[in-house]
Design a protein around this nucleic acid. Sequence first.
DNA 1: GATGCCGGGTT
DNA 2: AACCCGGCATC
Length: 460
Amino acid sequence: MPHVHAHAADAPPPRLLFVSAFAPLSNGAAAASMSPAVDRTGFPRLQNDLPPHEVCENRIGGCSRRVAAPRSLMTEFRCIFSVQDQVKGQGFSIRSVTPRLMRRSAPPSITAVDQCLPASTSREGEAPPTSADSRLLVTAVCDGLLSSCSSRGAQEVDMDELMAAMVLSSLSCSPPPKAVPPPNCAGPSVESGPELSDSGSSGHWSVDVANGSSAPSSPATAEPESETLVPPDEGLDMELDQVLFDEPAPRKRRNSVKVAYRCLWPSCGKVLTSVVGIKRHIRTTHLWRGGEHERCSRSEEDFYYTEINQPQSPPHPLLCGPGPASSSSSPSSPPSPPPPSPPSPPGCDSLSRSAPSPCGSSWQVQSEHSYQAPPPSHMVLPAPPTLCRLTTAPVTCSRPGSTFRVRSVSVGEQWLQHQGAPCRRIRSEAKKCRKVYGIEHRDQWCTACRWKKACQRFLD
DNA sequence: GATGCCGGGTT
DNA sequence: AACCCGGCATC
Ligand SMILES: [Zn+2]
């Protein structure tokens, strides 16, 4: 599929492209009914167009299908990028991919770049595509399988598609690079010139050919590091790099920018400095839903944070404030997948999951060790936790094993605040190990207390 | 000041 | 993962 690869000589082409949403490939019956139209290649039609993001990342769009290949399985996937007119007719190359999705596959390569129309048969008010931008259907293949969540059943399909959709994180727009055959992509790769630098085993390929010496005419874009156009890209790439290289992310970066991670949950915006931290925050503060079906969406947290570069200057008092709803102001893309349905009852559902293994008093020894483990609720805790009574002044909402305080009054509002300000663990009046045993008997404290974590022995 | 514990750092 | 601790909110 040879395609648009003429080099636009004039206008300095933007280096990056934008992505818009794309309906997932529908394998399941339910999904199929939603996207009846399938184009001639068997891919579902584009629909559910979202306004193009201001970033180059491809968080949501795309679909995939498995293609039988002589030797191995190939995965073909498509992503819709919304591009500006000026870049039409240029060569494109894969700039980066989503690392963890590609761990087990060979570098992807672009096989076709087609122009496409927003096939959204928009019956309702969908913003008509501006003339300033159009859409490119980028088809790529990779030799191998996208690593996907190892769930089963219908969920697998979804995850697979979703991941496929995310494979192409960003594209570079530049004159077609000199054909440097990618390491081992024996597939239908046609003109995928970009030299995919496979850095290590983790499966990261970043391609940025924009500065190729063969790019005579576009001085502006030829300089890869000048992020004049798309600042948010930097964050993304760093994120990718970090994940991809599997580097433990040196805590101190060489340059003076401090890296942090911002929670993207609506109106949260919490900023933490470690990936684990932010993930834990998201998981425990926003994503917690009863814990059971947790397994599959383990990496779900990834969607809800973004990496940011904090200039060395100390934080202004914004930090955990309620991120204003003005989405336009923030350059970083909002989390594309909508937040999972909130815990249906604002919090009353908690502790329904406890496994009351009656093991006498040995629980202390048994389970105390991992302070993160849910508390051994050996007693059948009676009905409603503190949350459900709205009478007390400081309303508390309870999560499994912990109690948090919120200031609000109404339940609904409570949930909102849940989203916004992560509740603080309420200080129970129960004496904790420290108080009970005293500092001099620190060795008798529970592990959590010793680590200055939430006490696990004397729960509220 | 003491206590509880979150977030982050170290080993 | 286990461990430690700075720092903050709260008592
Ligand atoms: Zn304790």
